[in-house]
Amino acid sequence: MNTVSQPLLRLENITKRFKELIAVNGVCLDVPLGEKLVIIGPSGSGKSTLLRSINLLEKIDEGSIQFEGREVGYVMRNGTRHLDHSQAISALRAEIGMVFQHFHLFPHMTVLGNVMEGPLTVQRKPAAEARAIAVDMLVKVGLPDKSDVFPATLSGGQKQRVAIARALAMRPKLMLFDEPTSALDPELVGEVFDAIHTLADEGMTMVIVTHHMGFARELADRVVFMESGNFLAQGTPAEVFGSGQDNERIRGFLNRLL
């Protein structure tokens, strides 16, 4: 197999149903190494579900996920799909960082403790090394002075930057952002975007779900517009956001937002 042309992440025919509702409807997607992919679309269109199924927080009903050319997450047993044994899943998740809309910092640990936790517990690194990595990551998101405080004392923007540092401490190959600024006050959005920009400049591969079109336009190599579990359109920001956009629904959505 030609490793150069092989994407870091390949989603094939992903389908996820919640009872009667089809959240993701047979979606295919390749994410090459280094790409910044932004998924936009109205609420309930399946963006988050698709993102969460990449690191197996959602169990998909059909389709396959390939990470670095390996099929991951599921095994066939007696003709039915099952999630892979937990060690394999944990190993995959350790390589994929995820940032949540509501941060989900560990409130009982200090900021440094949060960022150290992955290297310390999952990678079983010595405390000193885990600490060094954590300090590096906190410097990267601009919060080295907040090491010893508890998350409860931070602003939303600071919390999200710590969450980014926590994900980065695992040295992931892919970062997933699930509406990272949706829970923030408008004046705090900028600092989180800056942190993500820094990461993008370093060449991190990332998939971002966001409602901030300006941010999407600025950062994205490629934008995917999703609705009702399907990809309605994809292309460069210029193609999706530009005046050449001829899809009525997408134009309507963008007009409502801008």
Partner: peptide, 19 residues
């Protein structure tokens, strides 16, 4: 979300519970 965040950094169920 705490369990999801723990799993997202690669923790097993037992590690997430314990830590």
């Amino acid at each position: 979300g705490q369990m999801e965040a723990a799993k997202a950094i690669g923790m097993s169920y037992g590690q997430a519970m314990r830590r």
